[in-house]
């Protein structure tokens, strides 16, 4: 199948790539852009490990044809924060045990980031609902909720500090 030239905006960077039209965004991220933080855990779009933000909305990269997402702002886990400035959801996931094996983590971080952007103080039920399409086999979800709560606290503290200065 012949390739076609597509333009993607990922984590604020503009890319021009030649890919076949049937190539999934997930595979383009992982294979063409080396952004392997986005994972494939299933083959029927049921596990959430491949979640990415499309214009701020969490979606499944395994359902998306890369060529169909050219006019969007895409964010992967690699775009959430940097090693020296982790996003609050990232640091809290480590500190509160949200990541055991880590394979589902990027998907959860994406869904959580989107949730907190819309609703900075979600209730536990809202957290459960927002994360209900992301499967985790390790934690039983308890430490994931702890991680979300810690992220909320940290984001609030950062905001307060920002407002104070």
């Amino acid at each position: 199948m012949s390739k076609q030239l597509i333009k993607l905006r990922v984590n604020g960077e503009q890319y021009e790539l030649a890919v076949p039209p049937n190539k999934l965004l997930l595979d383009v991220l992982r294979e063409d852009l080396g952004l392997t933080g986005t994972k494939r855990g299933c083959d029927d779009s049921s596990c959430g490990a491949c979640s990415v933000l499309v214009d701020g909305v969490p979606m499944l990269a395994c359902v998306a044809l890369a060529a169909s997402y050219q006019d969007c702002e895409l964010t992967t886990v690699e775009g959430l924060g940097t090693l020296d400035a982790l996003h609050p959801v990232q640091s809290s996931w480590g500190d509160a045990g949200g990541a055991q094996c880590g394979f589902c983590t990027s998907g959860f971080l994406i869904s959580t980031k989107a949730l907190l952007d819309r609703n900075p103080h979600p209730s536990l039920d809202e957290i459960r609902e927002a994360l209900s399409a992301n499967l985790c086999r390790c934690t039983g979800y308890m430490q994931i909720y702890e991680s979300v709560k810690l992220a909320i606290e940290r984001a609030a503290a950062a905001k307060a500090a920002g407002a104070g200065s």
Binding site: S45, S51, V57, P58, M59, V63, S132, A133, N134
Partner: peptide
Amino acid sequence: IAGPLQRNM
């Protein structure tokens, strides 16, 4: 329907 991720798409 499905879950929130699928409903967003």
